[in-house]
Design a protein around this nucleic acid. Structure first.
Lengths: 361, 361
DNA sequence: TTGAAAGCGCTAACAT
DNA sequence: ATGTTAGCGCTTTCAA
């Protein structure tokens, strides 16, 4: 492979792509036969198939999927819209989607909304124009109207949400059990002896963060602890800076929590930094936990207790839902798949008793 | 937006998409006029344009980009192939690509090769079939043959590499100055008083890791230090586990380095863990540095010295290169853009003297 | 088992 | 300023 010169410039530009017409002409067959042979139709003799395939190979024929899609009405492309691909969660979901989708013969078109409704709407439009066979989407956190999704449905294109989905009837999607994850996490903190547990909360119009908050709330009440609004601080963003600001706000108040549950791992790290700055030890003085089980949770000290959301699995489930929808598109059952989450206990939350055996490395 | 029922099922399936034919019929105009009006051609009266746009809006017309692309030969889609989207680097590049591309009127189709040549080849094929207007690619680390790239060129499709590119003449792309980054980093370690600097090396057939190794090598010699092969340990993978294994190997040998430069941040963290386990302090006993400036470098203790690669900028440069290529496709200049890297000094490398003022937070 | 022919929805000459 | 016409490359009836 060395010294190889890449791209001799003899064929500057004018080399037309070879089409099935060319193959047909070359072999003295009709284009329809070529088409059928290439698509491995059952009513073409093996002999011609072989012949056609050989020539296609030789001439380096590449089918034009635009033409095929235009004619057939199916593009074999699956559109995916994610809010972003930072952190590990969405990449994991995308991975799951790609695996199952490509296995089912679909190409995947990934778009980032960058948490902007505008871009989300634009992407939906572009995907529809591109005639995708289906759309999988996790909403941006600025999405409050759902007309663009409604359009998709109106066109009869299968639409599947994952993780972040609108509170509407008749939409299908797959979500993690954020409620249960938060509930268990809060319960764990209580078992650690914490009695004054704060929550750094994400935006409450989003199902995921709403449910995390709710799980926290219900766990407190279930264990006879009061729910105090002063202990719930909204995060200005999901990153470290947001967590740090919220933590500072909390420390400036007149309640001194003995545990903090942040709705995101990144926010938890920001909080941890602030606690250090204030000379507070984690978990001895204040227990700390996040949500998502980002890889860096095991890199920091103490390691961060968190909740795993099984991203890959979620992606796969979303594709399965899509495939189902595609089969029988008359019944939009509004099916919701809820995936179990997994509490991962690490050092940051071991406030009291040694607690249950650690669930992870 | 509450209580809204999503997707009344009255229009089960049969609602044909509205096409420009429908618009033409409705307005008593020809399809070509409609087409021109929609594309804002300059030879259509403002009156009709308004009329057409109004009806299009009313009927919720969505153009069929497959048809348009098939006819015009341009898809306005840019294909992007990345090895993966873990960590922060490739997502940053993708972000840069998306920003500039969408600004230039292109949609972006992102594909992951997952470090498998097979998938890379498949993606190239799919993108060509999809008639993309150009392909931006960062090679998988298992790519050793470049025939699939050659095909792209042969078809006259602009091809731009970024970060990881083949050692061929006549290919264009944008890379970070890994050599210089590694050189400066090594120099910094030397200035810290380190005299026995090890390198955890990435695969040497890839330009990026090869250049990091080379920069390390040359910096040593330039400062009169010997280059000792025993101090260069190949990483089995770029993650923590790879770094940990390499570090263990190093510690088991008879050389005891006073600094370690890992070719990836993740590997550096793995190494850090092993050093801790061996009771060695960073940076007092052994200085440590990585490469890429991942966000977690500031989350760990000590914070990790690293080299920033300006991912967003790289993505933008790649798009610019593509746009250039598209304009004058006759001259494949094989232009290479080399982006400066930036040494970010943090606690993990402060082995000796206070050194130069810290470059970052 | 193969061929002929009609078009998918749009654009782009070329007319008018 | 608008209309006519001819396809882009493929799939898919309908015939043979």
């Amino acid at each position: 492979m060395d010294g190889q010169v890449f791209g001799d410039k003899n064929m500057a530009k004018g080399n037309k792509r070879v089409s099935i017409q060319d193959l047909a002409a070359e072999l003295g067959l009709s284009v329809s036969t070529i088409s059928r042979a290439l698509n491995n139709a059952l009513d073409v003799s093996e002999a011609t198939k072989a012949q056609v395939r050989a020539l296609a190979e030789k001439l380096n024929y590449q089918s034009n999927s635009m033409a095929a899609s235009l004619r057939s009405g199916r593009s074999h492309v699956l559109g995916v819209i994610v809010p972003h691909i930072n952190g590990a969660f969405f990449p994991a979901v995308v991975h799951g989607i790609e695996r199952l989708a490509s296995q089912a013969g679909f190409n995947v078109m990934i778009c980032q909304s960058s948490e902007e409704v505008g871009r989300e709407v634009a992407h939906v439009k572009a995907l529809l124009k591109a005639q995708v066979d289906g759309i999988l989407v996790s909403m941006s956190n600025t999405t409050r109207e759902y007309d663009h999704f409604e359009q998709v449905r109106r066109k009869g294109i299968p639409l599947v949400f994952f993780d972040r989905m609108p509170e509407l009837t008749n939409v299908c999607g797959v979500v993690a059990d954020d409620y249960r994850g938060a509930y268990q996490l809060t319960e764990h903190l209580i078992e650690q002896g914490c009695r004054c547990i704060a929550h750094l909360a994400g935006p409450q119009h989003l199902n995921i963060t709403h449910n995390r908050h709710q799980g926290y709330h219900d766990a407190l009440l279930a264990h006879g602890l009061p729910y105090d609004k002063q202990l719930v601080v909204p995060l200005s963003n999901s990153r470290e800076a947001g967590g740090a600001a919220a933590m500072r706000h909390l420390l400036a108040g007149n309640m001194r929590p003995d545990a903090v549950f942040a709705a995101y791992d990144f926010a938890a790290v920001g909080a941890m930094r602030v606690l250090e700055d204030h000379g507070l030890r984690v978990p001895e003085d204040i227990a700390l936990a996040g949500f998502s089980n980002e890889p860096f949770t095991t890199m920091i000290k103490p390691q961060l207790t968190s909740v795993d959301q099984h991203g890959v699995q979620m992606g796969e489930a979303a594709v399965q839902l899509f495939l189902q929808l595609q089969k029988r598109s008359d019944t939009f059952t509004g099916q919701r798949i809820v995936l179990k989450t997994k509490l991962i206990i690490r050092g940051s939350s071991l406030h009291g008793l040694p607690a249950q055996p650690a669930t992870s490395a």
